[in-house]
Every structure is written in structure tokens, then in C-alpha cells.
Deep mutational scan, measured.
Amino acid sequence: MAAGGDHGSPDSYRSPLASRYASPEMCFVFSDRYKFRTWRQLWLWLAEAEQTLGLPITDEQIQEMKSNLENIDFKMAAEEEKRLRHDVMAHVHTFGHCCPKAAGIIHLGATSCYVGDNTDLIILRNALDLLLPKLARVISRLADFAKERASLPTLGFTHFQPAQLTTVGKRCCLWIQDLCMDLQNLKRVRDDLRFRGVKGTTGTQASFLQLFEGDDHKVEQLDKMVTEKAGFKRAFIITGQTYTRKVDIEVLSVLASLGASVHKICTDIRLLANLKEMEEPFEKQQIGSSAMPYKRNPMRSERCCSLARHLMTLVMDPLQTASVQWFERTLDDSANRRICLAEAFLTADTILNTLQNISEGLVVYPKVIERRIRQELPFMATENIIMAMVKAGGSRQDCHEKIRVLSQQAASVVKQEGGDNDLIERIQVDAYFSPIHSQLDHLLDPSSFTGRASQQVQRFLEEEVYPLLKPYESVMKVKAELCL
């Protein structure tokens, strides 16, 4: 049975990233139509530049190519590739079939990587351009969430054990800070992308030097003109047959890092959902379990974690691919890159769409948070109580021993009897502590235990987050809708 299948058929496997999760716009960027249309555009740009620099290419040939950029006979191309065992030459023939007058000058002087690699770089750039505003929107939604809850005390956790208090907004800023680093890295790697350009079979530009009869300047002009037509500021000066596969490492490393950030955020949300302090959106008709109707599973956060793990592992592909590119190139890269580049971007696209949807509907339960604080705060307040007693004339050592005994009794009630923490009640009825009984409410005010959390939130948002989001103001209103 021949390899390949009808990918629109229910009898043929289709990647869930495309069929179930990723956005239509990201799927289109990695589609065959987008790819092969870009090949034709690159052939047109090459012909236009070659004509401008004096090669015998007519206006009629150029116009014929322009008129057929979208006229792609995919069936013919597939048949040609089956016959020739070469995808680029299959599309040269297919393009030439609908451009008979231009057929002889299509791909003039070029090698397969002229269309293959340059198209990949265009796709990487455009895919990054799709991700950047999506990530900015996630940051914006979380920034709104953090600002609104900047002063809401909550129990902090280290080692997932109760620690000092923080605020809900401050905790959210930990998430935002990681995503801001990801946004900066995505922008950097996007701006650092260079075009492969017009380089020939081993990167020496020998074929173009021959076409222009040894004119170095025209060869350099050709490279520059096509690079500018493709919208790049610069091209690699040095290439082998391909652009260095280190570029793929750079791009997928940034995406993998984004995956790590999203995994951490969504894990926190899942843990908070278990504590009943916070939940992701839950639709009115949504079913959490087929057997347990009360369940409210954090399905979206779980999906993000599941896909983020996949995204983090994909960076190993370009690392290994770059390491086995012998001399000017081997074909070890080809099949692998067809999979890992598309999957990385479709996965990143999915987790950003999902995280935006989550961040637009996060639900906080202040009463649950308050109750958990009441359970733990008495123990945390013991040092403040000791200091207040010393100020009232008591002995630190005597007070410490009193607190120690009462704390152990209260802990026994919590752990052995399943009761509430009654340390404060014990202190309130103990005559030894009568000098500070009137101060206990103040000493137990949760806001006095959150330090500068709310001020940190305000400063972080104003100095770091809002300036970073400013270039994306025009796209901030787009909502994230999930079908599944």
C-alpha cells in the first residue's frame, strides 16, 4: 500500500493539533497551500530580480507567473513527485505547466533550498508574528487579574506546605514575570531571523556568478533584492546548502521555554482548584465526569500541561538535527523538520489560546482563602504575639514557653481530632496574655502579614508589564474561544 493518505478522510490519521486544537490561522501558515504558494512567490521574486539585473526574462513571463501564483494543481504535483521522487522539481514542473512561456526560467540558477529553506524562514517569521500578540493578550488578562487582587491576602506555599502570606495578585505576578520573559525572547528570536537568500547549491553562489558572467556586484544585488522582497532586513552571508540548523534550535528553545512557563502556571491553577481557592472557567453544560456528576475538573489547565510537556520535548529534535548536518548538509534534517517545526508552533498556539481562555474567566473564592488563612495564621502570628507581650512588660522566655504549650495543644486538636485551630481562643482565655487581649485582632490582621506584596504588584505592572504590552494595544480586544 502506498504511503500517505487522504487526510480529510475519517479513515486516515490526522494530527489532533490540526484537527482538534490549533487555530485556523496557525494551521494555514503550515498548510501545503501556504507552503507551495510561497515557493511560487519566491520563484517570481527571483525572476523579477534577475530581470532587473539584466537576464533575458520578459515582462510577459513575469506576468504569467504572477497570474498563476494561486493556480496550484495539487493532484498534478503529487503525481509528479511520485514520478520524480523530488518535491521541488515536482512543483517546478507543475508551475511550468500553467506558465508555459515562463517554464524555462522558473528556478533559474537556484537549488531546492532556495524555495525550501527560504519558505521555512518566512513561515517561522509569520508563525512567530501570530504567537506574539496571543502571548501579549494572556499577559494582559493576567495583569488585569493581578491588579484587581493585588491586596487580597492568601496563604503562600513553599514545598506545598503553608508559608508566609502573600497576595493573590502577587502570586499571579510570578506567572506574568515568566511570560514577559517569554514574550521578550519570542520577539528577540523573531527579529534575529535572517533570510537564507540566493546562495546556490553549497552556499557559494557559483551558479549565479556564472549567470551574471562573473559580476560579483550583481550577485550581491540579486541576494539583497530577493531578501528585501521577502520582507527581511538581512540575509546570511555564510550558508551551506541550507541555512544553519542552529536557527531551528533557537526558535524551538524559546517555544519550549514558553511551554515550561505555561505548565507551571496551569499546575498552580490545578492545585488551587483542589484547594477550592480558584477555578478555571466551567461552562453551564460542561460535564466533569461521566460517573461523578459533582466533579469540576480543571480540564483546560490539564490540557495545557499535557501539550506543554510535548512542546518542551520537541527542542531535542533540532538539537540532534543540527549535530548531524555533515559538511554542507545531509538530508537527516528533512523529514524531522517537516514534523517538529509545525508541531512546535501548533502546540504553542494551542496552549496560548487555551491559557487566554482560562485567564479571561478565572474565578476566585475569597471566603475559602480566608478560612485557610484562619487555619494557619495563628501559628504564624506567634512571633508577633511574643513581641507584643514583651512590649507590655512580659518575659520573652516565659511567653515563648506559654505559646509553645498552647500551640501544641491547638495542633493536637487540628491533627488528632480534625478540629479547627483554636490557638487564639486559648490565648484569649489565658490570664497571662490579658495585657494584649485587646491587640489580638490587630495582630491577626492578614494584611499585616503580606509585606509589600501589593506595592510590588503595582510597581511591576507599571514599570515592566504595561510598557512591554504597549506595541500590542491594537490587538488586545480579541477574545479566545474554545470549541473543545
Rank of each mutant, 00 (worst) to 15 (best):
A2Y: 15
A3D: 15
G5L: 10
G5D: 07
G8D: 12
S9Q: 14
S9K: 11
P10N: 12
P10A: 13
R14E: 13
S19T: 00
Y21N: 14
A22S: 14
S23G: 07
F28I: 05
Y34E: 13
F36I: 15
T38S: 09
L42D: 00
L42W: 00
A47W: 02
A49D: 01
Q51I: 08
T52E: 06
T52F: 04
T58V: 13
Q61A: 08
S67F: 05
D73W: 07
F74A: 02
R85V: 11
R85Y: 12
D87L: 11
H93G: 10
T94S: 04
G96Q: 05
K101V: 08
G104R: 08
I105R: 14
I106S: 05
S112E: 05
G116K: 01
L121S: 12
L121T: 10
L128G: 15
S140D: 06
R141H: 13
R141D: 06
A143C: 02
A146H: 07
A146D: 06
A146Q: 00
A146N: 15
K147E: 13
R149V: 08
S151V: 11
Q161W: 00
A163T: 01
L165G: 00
T166S: 08
T167L: 02
V168F: 11
C173R: 04
L179G: 03
D182F: 03
Q184T: 15
K187Y: 12
R188E: 06
V189M: 12
V189D: 01
D191K: 11
D191L: 07
R196C: 13
R196N: 07
G197W: 01
K199H: 00
K199L: 01
T201N: 10
T201Y: 04
A206F: 02
Q210Y: 00
E220M: 13
E220S: 09
E220H: 11
D223A: 11
K224R: 10
M225E: 08
M225F: 06
A230Y: 01
F232D: 01
K233A: 06
K233S: 08
I237F: 07
I238M: 08
T239W: 01
Q241H: 00
R245V: 01
K246M: 01
K246A: 02
V247T: 14
L252N: 11
S253D: 04
L255N: 08
G259Q: 00
A260D: 04
H263L: 04
R270F: 00
R270H: 14
R270T: 00
L272W: 12
A273H: 13
A273Q: 01
P281L: 11
F282I: 14
F282K: 05
Q286R: 01
Q286L: 02
I287Q: 06
S289A: 01
A291F: 00
P293H: 08
P298E: 05
S301R: 00
C304I: 08
L307V: 11
R309P: 00
M312W: 05
T313E: 01
L314V: 05
L314Y: 14
M316R: 06
M316D: 08
Q320C: 04
A322T: 14
W326R: 03
E328A: 05
T330L: 08
D333Q: 00
N336K: 06
I339W: 06
L341Q: 04
L341D: 05
A342I: 15
A342N: 02
L346Q: 07
T347W: 05
A348T: 15
D349N: 07
T350I: 10
I351D: 03
Q356Y: 15
S359P: 14
S359E: 07
V363E: 01
K367I: 07
V368P: 02
Q375T: 01
E376S: 00
E376A: 13
L377S: 03
A381D: 02
T382E: 05
E383I: 01
A388L: 10
M389K: 04
V390I: 04
K391T: 15
K391Q: 09
G393C: 06
R396H: 05
Q397N: 15
D398F: 11
L406V: 10
S407A: 15
Q408R: 09
Q409R: 07
A411I: 05
S412H: 13
V414T: 15
Q416P: 09
G419H: 10
G419W: 14
N421V: 08
I424C: 14
I424N: 10
R426K: 13
Q428E: 09
V429R: 09
Y432R: 07
P435M: 04
I436R: 03
D441C: 12
H442Q: 15
L444H: 14
S448M: 09
L461N: 14
E464L: 08
E464H: 00
P467I: 08
L468M: 09
L469M: 07
K470T: 14
Y472A: 14
E473V: 14
S474R: 13
V475Y: 15
M476C: 11
K477L: 13
